[in-house]
C-alpha cells in the first residue's frame, strides 16, 4: 500500500510543520475533562458507588474504569473522524482537490493513509491522557487482552468505514462542521461509549445497533471491564465486521458521485 504510507508520511510532515508539539496535549484535553468530571461526580455525588442498573447494563461496578475506556475510545473516534472524514474537504479548501482527483490513485488507500496517521499520532497523544488517568489513580482491568486488541482494531475499522461516507457527504455539501458535530453528538449519545445503552429509549437502542462503532464498543467494554473472554466477544465482533463492510462498501460507491458533485459545486 505505497499510497497509504505516502499519504500517512505526507500528513505527518504537514502536521508537524503546521502545529507545535503542545497540539498533542490539547487534542486529548476533552477526554481528560470527561474522565475528571466523571471522577468528581462518582466521588462527590455517587459516594464512590454505582446504582444497580448501571451494573446490570455495563456488567461492572468499576464506573471510572468504564468511563476511562469509553472516553478514550470516544476521543480516539473523534480524532479519527477529524482526520479521515475531513481529508477530502481539507484538500478542497487548500486548492489541491483537483490535483488529487485527476490522479489515478484510489481513494481507499488514500483515506487509509489518513487513518494510519491518525492511529499512530493518537497513540502518542494518548500517552498524555494516560498521565491524567494515572494521576487520578484509576486502574483499568483487562479480562481479555486479545479481545481488547481486536476490539480496538474493530473500532478503527468501524470509524474508518463511517468516515468514508461522511467524507463524501462533506465534500458534496461543501461543509464539515455541522456534519461532523452531528456525528459526534449522535455517537456520543447512543454509541455506548461512557454509559450503558440500557438508559436510552428503545428506539435509540435499535438505532445504535445500526452503527458499527456500537458493537466495537461492546467488545472493548466487555474485554476490559465486562469480564468477558474472547469467545464471549466473537458474536459482537462479527456484527461489527458485517456493519463495517456494509458502511465501507456504501461509502466507496458513493464517494465518486460526491467528488463529482464537489467539482460541480465550484463551477
Amino acid at each position: 500500500m505505497p499510497i497509504a504510507w505516502a499519504t500517512a508520511w505526507r500528513t505527518w510532515q504537514m502536521t508537524r510543520r503546521a502545529y507545535p508539539w503542545t497540539y498533542a496535549v490539547g487534542t486529548v484535553l476533552p477526554a481528560a475533562l470527561a474522565i475528571s468530571l466523571a471522577y468528581l461526580g462518582y466521588h462527590a455525588i455517587g459516594g464512590g458507588t454505582v446504582a444497580a442498573d448501571f451494573q446490570q447494563g455495563s456488567g461492572t461496578t468499576a464506573y471510572l474504569a468504564y468511563v476511562v475506556v469509553g472516553a478514550t475510545a470516544f476521543q480516539f473516534t473523534v480524532r479519527l473522524i477529524l482526520w479521515s472524514a475531513k481529508a477530502l474537504i481539507t484538500e478542497q479548501r487548500q486548492g489541491t482537490l483537483g490535483a488529487l482527483l485527476v490522479a489515478p490513485a484510489g481513494r481507499f488507500p488514500y483515506l487509509l493513509g489518513f487513518t494510519v496517521f491518525a492511529v499512530l499520532s493518537s497513540l502518542v497523544e494518548f500517552l498524555t491522557l494516560g498521565l491524567v488517568i494515572a494521576a487520578l489513580g484509576v486502574s483499568v482491568p483487562v479480562s481479555s487482552a486479545a479481545g481488547a486488541l481486536l476490539g480496538a482494531l474493530a473500532l478503527v475499522a468501524a470509524v474508518f468505514a463511517l468516515s468514508v461516507g461522511l467524507g463524501g457527504l462533506m465534500i458534496a455539501a461543501g461543509e464539515a462542521h455541522i456534519s461532523q458535530n452531528t456525528v459526534f453528538i449522535v455517537l456520543g449519545l447512543v454509541g455506548g461509549f461512557t454509559f450503558p445503552r440500557d438508559y436510552l429509549p428503545l428506539w435509540a437502542q435499535w438505532f445504535a445497533e445500526l452503527l458499527p462503532t456500537t458493537s466495537a464498543m461492546d467488545v472493548l467494554h466487555g474485554a476490559f471491564t465486562g469480564g468477558q473472554s474472547l469467545p464471549d466477544l466473537l458474536p459482537r465482533l462479527g456484527v461489527c465486521a458485517l456493519l463495517t463492510a456494509a458502511y465501507l462498501l456504501l461509502g466507496l460507491l458513493y464517494l465518486p458521485r460526491a467528488e463529482a458533485r464537489a467539482v460541480e459545486r465550484t463551477y
Binding site: 499510497i3 490522479a103 490513485a105
Partner: peptide, 30 residues
C-alpha cells in the same frame, strides 16, 4: 494517460517542499 495544469488553482501542498510535493504525486501516479 493525462494530467491537468490549471493556472487558477494551487494544486500543490504549501507545507511540503517542492521535492516532497513531486515525490508524493509520483506515488499517486505509481
Amino acid at each position: 494517460r493525462i494530467n491537468l495544469i490549471a493556472g487558477g488553482e494551487r494544486m500543490v501542498y504549501t507545507r511540503m517542499t517542492g521535492r516532497e510535493n513531486l515525490w508524493y504525486f509520483g506515488q499517486l501516479y505509481d
